[in-house]
Amino acid sequence: MNPAEVEDIEVRLFLEAIHRRYGYDLRDYAPASIRRRVLLALAKSGHAHLGQLQHEVLTCPPFFAHLLEDLTVRVSEMFRDPSFYRAFRTQVVPVLRTYPLLKIWHTGCATGEEVYGTAIVLTEEGLYERAQIYATDLSPQALAQAKEGTYSSEVVKTFTENYQRGGGTGNFAAYYTEAYGGVAMNEALRRNVSFFQHNLVSDHAFGEMHVIFCRNVLIYFGNDLRERVLNTLSQSLCAGGFLCLGASERLGRLGESLAFSDFISEERIYRHEN
């Protein structure tokens, strides 16, 4: 057995330890990416071996709370992939207009950028008042940041550029106020948003959504887990509901078995036929 295969065993045992001790199940995450997170956490800890890190994790719950934040990836961006938002505005929004009430779920919302992005789109399209938006993530720390809705001035430049490229019809600067060397998104954008913790791996489907955003979350899951989670998501959509994935994610064969059809395939927008 070569050292790389031995390392794979160590990583598996480490994830097993976390699951048994704390109930968080990262065992079926995509091996390449979770391995990278684990090794980065090891380097940060100063321990020489995963065995030592495992011991500290097992015996020190506060340490684990920190580690969990390092193992999940909370990097996000407002209006990431502007062409997606253009397509959403021009082709999904007209369908949403036909519903008197809208339920929208952002799964794996991380620090909330996408949630505010959608809120802006809905506001500009005159649909915000009838929308109820659920924003969930596994990471409590990410959710806290999402709820706060403050971002650094550095990234606002990117958000603004993305907003314009994504078909924004207003002035992006009107959606935030300067605060503490950064910006705070307007309170009005979160009036119809509820933020709460939800674990896609172990928690239940919840109901009758018109749109589910699950962008750049499934890429972190291994094949079997991804299929299981997609199943949960399909159960959470109403008939004709939309599923939006990240730019490089495709449903592939699974689309058919879960009763999804391509709505705008190049933007990874799928529709549930059910």
Binding site: A32, S33, V73, I219, Y220, G246
Partner: peptide, 21 residues
């Protein structure tokens, strides 16, 4: 490799993408 994702490899001869920082 696509823009804006890291590109990695899995043992079962497949690509993996992620949006890590």
């Amino acid at each position: 490799a696509p823009a804006n994702y890291h590109l990695l490899l899995e043992r079962h001869h497949a690509f993996a993408l992620n949006t890590d920082a």
